[in-house]
């Protein structure tokens, strides 16, 4: 006689488990999984060759290069900012700390389009410095500097919000010990703090980089959409899509998908290897 194992009172019945997992899979399938599959299916609709040609086209390569340059400046910038902000906030006491953290978070809740718009208001032709910039022949809006600025803004909180809770949790005792034994501030930072937060920093850099390479709204406002010149990868996808060149659009999109998947895999590996990192941000 196969005795039915008594169910623990806090365990759900099997039918409930099946129902909940089933509903979840249908929902995730419709919203997350099918779109991901569709990108690769559309990119390879006419085989691998046209997709590779689309990625190898001069305009696409220029877009890839600009996206890489943008991320290569925006991410280190935000990393330096994040390290400064977290050292000041997590390791010291001062009034107005909560307000400062809220202000650092602000870019999360500002629409990317509004972010782009505000730089147009400052550096655009009709903006505060518009005429002076023209006099000196400096282009910020509709040029690479504007794209980098807009990207820095939308990815601004990523690394800081990762590091602040991590450093707060670790406290100051290790650093205080080092300093009391005569270590300089910089030495203490490199030898004590940096090793403690490096995985959290990497985690923040990973998420920051994904967003920096993929930002669309803010960059779209300040870019001017000049092919081969001020087009980042997501903007190039838009242009190709609007020209009904679907295979090429989805081929470049597939490249961005691969980057996203790589980001998720590295993120997953980091979360398993260093469970501490997950306690940060949340965005």
């Amino acid at each position: 006689m196969a005795a039915a194992r008594a169910r623990h009172p806090t365990e759900d019945p099997v039918w409930a488990k099946v129902l909940i997992i089933g509903l979840m899979l249908v929902f995730l399938g419709l919203v997350l999984i099918l779109p991901l599959v569709a990108v690769f299916a559309e990119a390879l609709r006419k085989g691998l060759q046209p997709a590779l040609e689309a990625i190898g086209a001069a305009d696409a390569l220029a877009a890839i290069k600009l996206s890489l340059i943008t991320a290569a400046i925006a991410v280190p910038f935000n990393a330096v900012f994040g390290l400064c902000a977290s050292w000041a906030i997590a390791k010291h006491h001062f009034p107005g700390k909560a307000l400062l953290i809220t202000l650092i978070d602000l870019p999360f809740s500002v629409s990317p389009v509004v972010a782009g718009l505000m730089y147009v208001m400052v550096f655009g032709l009709q903006g505060w410095f518009g005429e002076r910039l023209i006099d000196h022949d400096i282009k910020i809006i509709f040029a690479t500097p504007g794209i980098i600025l807009a990207t820095i803004f939308v990815t601004f909180p990523f690394i800081a919000r990762e590091l602040i809770p991590l450093m707060q949790e670790q406290g100051v005792s290790e650093e205080e010990a080092a300093v009391s034994m005569g270590a300089s501030g910089l030495y203490t930072f490199w030898r004590v703090t940096a090793p403690n937060v490096r995985w959290g920093l990497l985690y923040g850099v990973l998420l920051c980089n994904a967003r920096a390479m993929g930002e669309f709204g803010a960059v779209s406002v300040v870019s001017g959409h000049i092919r081969g010149l001020t087009n980042t990868m997501p903007l190039h996808v838009e242009i190709l899509y609007n020209e009904y060149d679907f295979v090429a659009a989805f081929a470049v999109a597939a490249l961005l998908c691969l980057l996203a998947i790589l980001t998720l895999v590295l993120k997953g590996v980091l979360e398993i290897a260093q469970p501490d990192v997950k306690r940060g941000g949340g965005h």
């Binding site: 979840m24 899979l25 995730l28 419709l30 997350l32 999984i33 099918l34 779109p35 991901l36 569709a38 990108v39 559309e42 998420l207 994904a210 967003r211 390479m213 993929g214 930002e215 669309f216 709204g217 990868m233 997501p234 903007l235 996808v237 838009e238 899509y241 679907f246 659009a249 989805f250 999109a253 961005l256 998908c257 980057l259 996203a260 998947i261 980001t263 998720l264 895999v265 993120k267 997953g268 965005h283």
Partner: peptide, 30 residues
């Protein structure tokens, strides 16, 4: 599944946009 939940954080929004538009257009998969 756990990793996929974070896909919207990692995937460029424009890519999600064209994929969803293609899926849900009148002759798309869905």
């Amino acid at each position: 599944v756990n990793a996929l939940v974070d896909l919207p954080f990692a995937l460029p929004t424009a890519v999600a946009g064209i994929a969803l538009a293609t899926l849900y257009s009148p002759n798309g998969w869905v």
